[in-house]
Write a protein that binds this DNA or RNA. Structure first.
Length: 172
DNA sequence: CAGAAGATCGGG
DNA sequence: CCGATCTTCTGC
């Protein structure tokens, strides 16, 4: 199976967020078991201008990884409880990422973090050659719907209204 | 150094 | 609708 490489993730987050729909997220656990699930919901966070983007105010210890070349993982703890999974995209020096909000069978970014047993150690993981998490190039036929991103009203106009949330509605 | 708020979820 | 639970950033 073809694994998505860093070249793939070096493009624009808004494009990649859509393109990732139908691709398969794979997590291999320490005990050897494997969880595979197609991505069905994503959100894009793009650049300094996007006030909903954690990195819009520049580099901090937390956002540092978003300035890397695309293809590494950005995880962070939200509300002291949930680890959210993002894939950094774009070129080095430009902060952007795609949040994985849903995969088949698991709805919600917090639940994904729980089911995938994510933690701090995944921060900066290279998705191209990691032995425990990667994405495979699969295709699912369906329709893509767009909507505003969740939980970022504080970002204000026009960012809170950007249609940067993408969902795949499979045919069949 | 204190305080507030957060890309969420589950329970009542 | 609220509490959980803790990291991160801001402001004094």
């Amino acid at each position: 199976m073809n694994r998505l490489d860093r070249e793939y993730f070096s493009k624009n987050a808004v494009q990649i967020a859509q393109d990732l729909l139908g691709k398969t997220l794979v997590r291999k656990f320490d005990d050897g078991s494997v969880l595979r699930a197609p991505i069905v919901e994503t959100e894009a966070y793009f650049g300094f201008e996007d006030r909903a983007n954690h990195a819009s105010k520049g580099r901090t210890p937390r956002t540092e990884i978003m300035f890397a070349r695309g293809g590494v993982i950005y995880v962070y703890l939200i509300y002291g409880i949930h680890w959210l999974l993002n894939i950094v995209t774009g070129s080095e020096g430009h902060p952007e990422a795609v949040l994985i909000r849903g995969v088949y069978g698991i709805s919600g970014p917090g639940r994904i973090g729980k089911r995938l047993k994510l933690d701090r150690s995944f921060y900066g993981e290279n998705i191209e050659n990691s032995h425990r998490i990667w994405i495979e190039d699969t295709v699912i036929n369906g329709k893509i719907s767009t909507s505003p991103r969740i939980g970022i009203a504080y970002a204000g106009t026009p960012w809170k209204d950007k249609l940067w949330r993408f969902e795949l509605k499979p045919i069949n």
